[in-house]
């Protein structure tokens, strides 16, 4: 019994990581209907940026992540401004194929620079620290921080979207591109800011990805799939739905792993497929979309 309860708790905590993966994808889709196939590789890129800063400057990963955040914002802004804005339009093919090409470029660029070796963000004693929850169950401090960060990121994103002029411009642009321009919104810039913001969230995700487990340049696509599954399970258009979707995915994986360790990833994918068949609009679809 304890084993199952433990699986549930670990699953919820793991869901925090998946929600962080997914929040950036959800933001981008919400603002510009772009599905970024390089999203997972950008998470891995951010992890390597944090790693490099931490190694060069001898910093704690948390501090290195703080430094990485403005760098990744600029990367996102430039990527959108220079490349991705050119692909947007009625045709789906250009953005998909350009981000797919980008995924291959980032993966292989990282392979060239860092080799295929596994890396990890070393944070000292916090990595192994845990809080006893009684009954022989403990929650790791880093997994707990991951979930709390996911909640914080979603609260902040909701504030930005629903309480600031920037968020108003995001929603207006998403609603009606032509009229948004006539409000003085420079759509290309708004998109670039949105992508910059998404990569800030990606950097937070990368911090926890790198502290919780080993990473190497090839693991990006799998993170893209988890992020995508969390978004769809939760229902498009709501950040809280994305958190719920991440948790459902995390639960499916840890419970699957409890049955047979080899089934962890498969169980997550199957949970996604089941939700897709039974509730095609996700578990928590927004009323208006």
């Amino acid at each position: 019994m304890t084993g199952w309860l433990d699986a549930v708790i670990q699953g919820i905590l793991l869901g925090g990581l998946y929600a962080l993966f997914a929040a950036g994808l959800s933001l981008i889709f919400g603002v510009m209907r772009l599905v970024n196939l390089a999203h997972g590789d950008l998470i891995v890129l951010a992890a390597f940026v944090i790693l490099t800063l931490a190694t060069w400057l001898g910093l704690d990963p948390f501090v290195a992540a703080l430094l990485a955040i403005p760098i990744m914002f600029v990367v996102g802004f430039a990527l959108q401004h220079v490349l991705l804005n050119r692909t947007l339009g009625r045709d789906l093919l250009p953005p998909l194929l350009v981000t797919f090409g980008l995924s291959i470029i980032i993966q292989n660029g990282l392979l060239q620079l860092f080799s295929a070796d596994s890396e990890r963000l070393r944070a000292g004693s916090i990595e192994t620290a845990s809080i006893a929850l009684g009954g022989g169950i403990a929650a790791g401090v880093v997994p707990l921080l991951t979930l709390l960060s996911a909640i914080a990121v979603i609260v902040i994103l909701n504030l930005v979207f629903y309480r600031t002029p920037l968020g108003r411009a995001f929603r207006a642009t998403s609603d009606d591109l032509e009229i948004a321009q006539l409000m003085g919104i420079e759509v290309g810039r708004i998109y670039a800011v949105a992508m910059g913001l998404a990569l800030v969230v990606v950097t937070v995700a990368a911090l926890y990805l790198g502290m919780r487990a080993n990473f190497d340049p090839t693991i990006g696509p799998a993170r893209l799939l988890y992020a995508f599954e969390a978004v769809i399970i939760g229902g498009l258009g709501s950040f809280w739905g994305t958190l719920a979707g991440g948790i459902v995915l995390g639960l499916a994986q840890t419970i699957g792993a409890r049955i047979d360790p080899e089934w962890q990833i498969l169980a997550g994918h199957l949970a996604f497929l089941v939700v897709l068949v039974l509730r095609p609009r996700g578990l928590f679809p927004r009323a208006v979309d």
């Binding site: 108003r168 929603r171 207006a172 998403s174 009229i179 321009q181 006539l182 003085g184 919104i185 420079e186």
Partner: peptide, 29 residues
């Protein structure tokens, strides 16, 4: 996007208010 800064504003055919904004947000934007 420069039009409005020049001092020209359009009331478009069919209103085209932003559906995911409140009335006040529509005015503010």
């Amino acid at each position: 996007y420069r039009t409005v800064a020049r001092g020209i504003a359009l009331v478009p055919e069919g209103r085209r208010l932003f559906p995911s904004l409140t009335v006040e947000e529509n005015l503010l934007i």
